[in-house]
Design a protein around this nucleic acid. Structure first.
Length: 577
RNA sequence: GCCGAGAUAGCUUAGUGGUAGAGCACCUCCUUGGUAAGGAGGAGGUUGUGGGUUCAAUCCCCACUCUCGGCUCCA
């Protein structure tokens, strides 16, 4: 093969070839940028006509022509003035803008056929080296990612070195659809969104509610056993509260419009923290009482832009597993460690064992709090991360304006990262609410506040769980844990007794007595992603036994005692993941 | 919010300027069966909402709502 080029190079060249094709088909089009990205490439264009899927096919055909001509990619060094002159005649305003940010007098260009593009390279040797590619979609994109600038048309595509890699990738895309939580939500009858209620507002159906309540119950128990006190706060509050917290000033665009109640403006809460601090302030606290840990499954509403709503993963109303810890400066580090361990433990329970940890530090400007506190908090977090020997990345300047934070991103079954957990120090709200405790010398002292969420939003987390498990949730989370199937109607009464027995032992079971053959009912149960199937026929009934099939492993336990099965199930439920 | 696409039965969808068809699910009947779809029949639709054009609109036009692919943003 001689000169082996990287996949990025191949894809970047594919973007050039696509641009060449687009300029041939649409001579008036203006070029913006066309990089290689994680799974392919794109190029942004300004074109008078809106591109359709048919145009995409035509562009692809034109690309094949260019590939067949096997033009070499020629590197050129062109004097700056010549380039500008040329771009001006073609009115390539985006390219001209790019050049204005480049200092050099001689610019690097690449030519293939008659198409020349400003580019640092590198490229494949000739267009014929691009063999396996596909254009995927057209989308809108802002020039320079700035929503105040021109909106361009972006064409996405992908390219690979071998046909096998390309088909594998396209297959993966198809497979990804099988774990789409929106599809699974419909298929498994978990939740829906209704236009009469509004976008981003989730209706939880009975089966979805079981999942949600099971998670909530687990979280409440987890918090209680970790010395948290559960609290409960209203869904709306007077603007006075959000004036004190500063949300009306800093978070306004995400808050729903106010409603007037007896001429006073009220808001739906976008966050729980102000209410938690109001509870803290309700009495004096001694240094002996710290740390004080409040937790609430708090439902908040945020006015997300309509275009960003996405199934359960981006909604307008959601329940946070929200917690706020008031802690003295000297206990901060230990408390962060405790919180970190609790979070990891919680995520592991749901089957997430791999994460990436980020420490986000003080922003360059527009931050609140004094430098000494920032340093102490950042140092405490860093000490914790060093103490647990977990690798982490530093997100320099990525902290919130009110304090540094640890973000934990979990890795799902197909390697995607999701941010759920966050542990944040907050210097802002303690000031704004004038939060203090009485120290050992009887004086008021400002504590630190930790804001933390283990799974973030329950709605979003369920979406992630569904995609992670492809809908096949662990037993403890499955809405229906066991389904009973009778082979013939002779067993109906026996099945009903079994159902009663399972339910009495806290197993979520149902009995599918539908008049259909056993193959049909098994298929139906598997499609419903029910973890266990009890199959009851003449044999089982006569021996007062059951046969149970595990739908994940497709293994069947033949003729078992129901009590043995019950204890098996209960063990697995208690083990959780 | 922006650019684009879309909305037809519970679900997945076909189709048409003269009020719509299929598969699955559902109901009834036959079948009483042994580990991923047994057979027959039936019912089910104001074609997302509101306007407009037209003799006539599910289809053409406009607005709205919701959804989807992205951008921007984010738990």
């Amino acid at each position: 093969m001689g000169n082996i080029k990287s996949l990025d190079t191949l894809r970047h060249s594919a973007a050039h070839i696509m641009a060449a094709a687009v300029q041939e088909l649409f001579p008036e089009s203006k070029l913006a940028i066309g990089p290689a990205i994680e799974n392919g490439f794109y190029y942004d264009f300004e074109i008078n006509k809106t591109l359709t899927p048919k145009d995409l096919t035509n562009i692809e055909l034109k690309m094949i022509e260019i590939v067949k001509k096997d033009y070499p990619f020629i590197h050129l060094s062109v004097p700056r003035t010549n380039v500008i002159k040329k771009l001006k005649t073609k009115m390539e305003k985006y390219k001209l803008e790019i050049i204005s940010t480049i200092e050099e007098n001689s610019l690097s260009m690449y030519q293939c056929g008659s198409f020349i593009d400003l580019c640092k390279g590198p490229h494949i040797n000739k267009t014929g080296d691009l063999k396996y590619f596909k254009l995927l979609s057209v989308a809108g994109a802002y020039w320079r990612g700035d929503e105040n600038r021109e909106q361009l048309q972006r064409i996405y595509g992908t390219a690979f070195f071998t046909e096998k890699d390309l088909t594998t990738y396209l297959n993966q895309m198809l497979q990804a659809k099988k774990r789409d939580h929106r599809m699974l939500g419909k298929l498994l009858d978990l939740f829906s969104i209704n236009s009469n209620i509004g976008g981003g507002l989730i209706l939880w159906h009975p089966k979805g509610t079981i999942i949600k309540k099971t998670i909530e119950h687990y979280l409440e128990q987890l918090h209680i056993s970790n010395s948290y006190e559960l609290i409960s706060t209203p869904h709306i509050a007077s603007d006075k509260l959000f004036n004190i917290s500063g949300h009306l000033q800093t978070y306004n665009e995400y808050m729903f419009a106010p409603m007037q109640i007896e001429n006073n403006p009220y808001r739906i809460k976008p966050m729980n923290c102000p209410m938690h601090l109001t509870i803290y302030k309700n009495k004096l606290h001694s240094y002996r009482d710290l740390p004080i840990r409040y937790a609430e499954l708090g439902t908040v509403y945020r006015f997300e832009k309509s275009g960003v709503l996405y199934g359960l993963l981006r909604v307008r109303g959601f329940t946070q597993d929200d917690g706020h810890i008031i802690v003295s400066p000297q206990d901060l580090e230990d408390e962060i460690l405790t919180t970190f361990n609790m979070t990891i433990n919680c995520l592991a329970t749901f089957g997430f064992k791999e994460y990436k940890v980020y420490l986000a530090t003080k922003p360059e400007k527009n931050y609140v709090g004094n430098l000494k506190d920032w340093l102490l908090a950042e140092q405490s977090i860093q000490n914790v991360l060093n103490r647990i020997h977990y690798p982490y990345e530093i997100d320099q300047g990525g902290g919130a304006f009110y304090g540094p934070k640890i973000d934990i991103k979990i890795k799902d079954a197909v390697g995607r990262l999701w941010q759920c957990s966050t542990i944040q120090v907050d210097f802002n709200l303690t000031e704004r609410f004038d939060i203090y405790y009485i120290d050992s010398s009887g004086r008021k002292k400002r504590p630190f506040m930790i804001h933390r969420a283990l799974i973030g939003s329950i709605e979003r987390f369920i979406g992630i769980l569904l995609e992670h498990y492809e809908g096949k949730l662990p037993l403890w989370l499955s809405p229906i844990q066991v389904t009973i199937l009778n082979i013939s109607k002779e067993q109906i009464n026996y099945c009903k007794e079994l159902l009663k027995k399972l339910q009495n032992h806290g197993i979520r079971a149902n009995f599918n007595y539908k008049n259909a053959n056993i193959g049909y009912k098994i298929r139906d149960s598997i499609n419903q992603k029910i973890p266990y199937i009890l199959i009851i026929g003449k044999q089982e009934q006569s021996k007062n036994m059951v046969s149970m099939r595990n739908t994940k492993t497709n293994k069947t336990f033949e003729l078992m005692n129901i009590d043995t099965i019950l204890s098996m199930l209960q063990d697995e439920i208690n083990y959780k993941h």
